[in-house]
Amino acid sequence: MPVLNVALVGSEDLARRLGKKGDTRDIESYVHKESRDGEVRVLSLLRPLKFPESIRPLLSVLDVAKAGLLEIRELSASVGEAMVALGCSGISRGSAIISPDEGVWIDSDQVRVMLDQAGLGDWEVVEGEIDEHGIRDRLFEIQDQMAASMEKTNSSPLILPVDQHFNVKGVGLVAIGYVQSGKVSKHDEVEVMPASDVGVVRSLQVMDDDVDAAITGDRVGVALRNLREQSLHRGCMICIPGEGGLVSHEKSSFELGVAPFQRKVLSVGEVIHAASDLQFSVGRVSSLDGDSVTVDWESPFWIRTDGSSRVLIVQLDATPMRIMGTASGIETIG
């Protein structure tokens, strides 16, 4: 059952027109299932709550999403920040839906220019009456275009960040999160980082269905045995022992690709946050040399060993543009 995770930055009304409401945390999920060519296909629309007041839910959505929808009711600083966040996260496929508030006029040409500047040159601009069927058809087209790359990601090492966990009577310890890469199956031996505790997968659930395996893009509940509950916390990583998919950074160096529209410059001693694979890690800039930045992390920051991590650098007090840019060539020091 292929799933396409979609970042939906827009109104609850739009989300309800596109899918059936599911669970709500700091992110609302809306699901649309449809049978196409004899196969059940799924659109999982993820709507960050509290944005623009809080940017973390948006960044969590962008860590998971492979496509985007941006509803534009007025041209504002928060719309510009959302565009930059989408562009810096590599969400290269999507639609900007112009849906102005009453009495507001939005210039579609200006929207096009802003998208191009934000790195979203391949996004389409949609005007007029909202056609939910047309929007979903476009998302299924994107899913088709990404099928080969998603299949390749399934063969990568397992990376499964945990965003919540609890004990279920009759089941035991359950961890929930999105499979960022790789595959997890029933009876797999798994390792939880950074505790380095090992357990065994007892059972798996995806969208309330029991499954034998979960693949890239699935939001999965993993029932575990032989594992201490203390090893689980939000932001910990479930991996397969010996695959070596992640490396821990306590101090990193990287080149900062400055975000579009960003005028602020980092200074030594400033606090930053790094968003990657559902982590939101705190660090302090210890040195600068042009665009080369060195950061000491408050707690271990996990980076993919294959170099595929996409890391967004954020400063929470850098309003109206909190996205500082992307970290490339990130390496551990020491």
Rank of each mutant, 00 (worst) to 15 (best):
E74F: 06
D13Q: 14
L58A: 05
R25T: 13
R41A: 13
Y30T: 11
A67R: 01
A67D: 04
V9D: 01
E28G: 02
A15V: 04
S78M: 05
S44M: 12
L4C: 04
D63S: 12
G80C: 04
A67I: 03
L14R: 08
V40I: 14
K33Q: 12
K50E: 12
A67Q: 06
R56G: 04
V61A: 06
T24L: 11
G10A: 04
G80P: 00
I27P: 05
P57K: 13
D63I: 03
E34G: 07
H32Y: 15
D13K: 14
S60T: 01
L70I: 07
D26T: 07
R73C: 02
G80A: 10
K50Y: 14
V3L: 12
K21L: 12
S11V: 13
S76A: 11
I27D: 03
V31T: 15
I72Q: 02
K21W: 08
E39M: 12
G19T: 05
K66G: 07
E74H: 12
I27T: 12
P52W: 12
N5M: 00
V3W: 11
S76P: 10
A15E: 07
L70Q: 04
G10H: 05
R73Y: 03
P48N: 07
S44T: 06
V31G: 00
L18I: 13
H32T: 10
R47E: 03
V79H: 06
V31D: 03
S60D: 13
E12M: 05
G19Q: 09
S78A: 13
V40H: 06
A82S: 15
E81Y: 07
P52E: 13
S35Y: 14
E71D: 11
L59A: 09
L49P: 01
I72R: 10
V61T: 10
L75V: 15
E28F: 08
G22E: 14
L62C: 15
F51T: 01
S35N: 14
P48C: 08
V6N: 08
D13H: 11
L69C: 02
R41E: 14
V64I: 14
